[in-house]
Design a protein around this nucleic acid. Structure first.
Length: 110
DNA sequence: GAGATGACGGGCT
DNA sequence: AAGCCCGCCATCT
């Protein structure tokens, strides 16, 4: 399985109402420092994908923030999708990891 | 094969 | 507190 296929497979397992960070996905995949590569993988995703890419946010201290600046989809769209799933952003447009972060068991690299 | 790039993250200024 | 810089990993040209 390619790196990005593993990223997609993992992202697809994120349940509704939960989120992960790029770094968290990388860690679960066995490469703690591959956060950038995770973002790269999601960037290669077709617009029509069924992968819930909007549940992956950037990590900002103990909060998660939408860290898209230029992309096919807009940051507003991502936020809208998340709110539609019941997540609530604070006044500064971020999500508390303590509430929404989904912690997954590590998936050993094949 | 080498250099540049990006939806990142953490540390330092 | 906000911004800048450097290191990371997988792709792309």
């Amino acid at each position: 399985m390619n790196f990005y296929e593993r990223v997609y497979a993992l992202v697809e397992t994120i349940p509704v109402g939960k989120i992960m960070t790029y770094g968290g996905v990388a860690l679960a995949l066995g490469s703690p420092r591959a956060a950038r590569a995770v973002g790269y993988a999601l960037n290669a995703l077709p617009p029509t994908t069924c992968v819930p890419w909007h549940r992956v946010l950037g990590r900002r201290g103990s909060y998660a923030v939408i860290s898209i600046h230029s992309f096919k989809h807009s940051a507003a769209e991502q936020r809208q999708r998340l709110e539609a799933e019941g997540l609530i952003f604070d006044a500064e447009g971020r999500l508390a990891l303590a509430v929404y972060l989904w912690e997954i068991a590590l998936i050993p690299p094949i």
